[in-house]
Amino acid sequence: MRIIIDRDRCIGAGQCVLTAPGAFTQDDDGLVTLLPGHEDGTGDPNVRYVPGACPVQAVTVSDD
């Protein structure tokens, strides 16, 4: 699984963290970031739902 984050598009809504808290967090500016070691989507089974939860589609998840 591959996760792509467009931090320029992120508005800090936090839906990624609410949907998959085991993989995502927000930095000091409130923007989405992956938790260390979760770049491949491991850590939270709900990672696949994050693109649909994000109001500005700042996160893309694809199968490798």
Results as ranks from 00 to 15, higher is better:
Arg2Tyr: 02
Ile3Tyr: 08
Ile3Leu: 12
Ile5Trp: 02
Ile5Gly: 02
Arg7Gln: 15
Asp8Leu: 10
Asp8Ala: 13
Asp8Lys: 10
Arg9Phe: 01
Arg9Pro: 02
Arg9Thr: 14
Cys10Lys: 05
Gly12Asp: 07
Gly12Ser: 09
Ala13Met: 03
Gly14Gln: 06
Gly14Pro: 05
Gly14Phe: 05
Gln15Ile: 00
Cys16Lys: 02
Cys16Val: 06
Cys16Arg: 03
Cys16Ser: 08
Thr19Ala: 04
Ala20Asp: 01
Ala20Ile: 00
Pro21Asn: 11
Gly22Pro: 11
Phe24Gln: 00
Gln26Tyr: 01
Asp27Thr: 11
Asp27Gly: 08
Asp28Phe: 02
Asp28Trp: 03
Asp28Pro: 00
Leu31Glu: 04
Val32Ser: 12
Thr33Met: 13
Leu34Gln: 07
Leu35Gln: 13
Pro36Asn: 03
Pro36Arg: 04
Gly37Ile: 08
Glu39Gln: 15
Glu39His: 12
Asp40Ser: 14
Asp40His: 10
Gly41Val: 04
Gly41Cys: 05
Gly41Gln: 01
Thr42Asp: 11
Thr42Phe: 01
Thr42Gly: 15
Thr42Val: 14
Gly43Trp: 03
Gly43Ile: 09
Gly43Thr: 07
Pro45Ser: 10
Pro45Ile: 07
Asn46Thr: 06
Arg48Gln: 12
Arg48Glu: 12
Arg48Ile: 13
Tyr49Gln: 13
Val50Glu: 05
Val50Met: 12
Pro51Ile: 07
Ala53Asp: 01
Cys54Tyr: 03
Cys54Ala: 10
Cys54Asp: 07
Pro55Trp: 04
Pro55Leu: 08
Pro55Gln: 07
Pro55Phe: 03
Val56His: 02
Val56Tyr: 03
Val56Ile: 12
Ala58Leu: 08
Ala58Ser: 15
Ala58Cys: 14
Val59Ser: 06
Thr60Glu: 15
Thr60Lys: 15
Thr60Val: 15
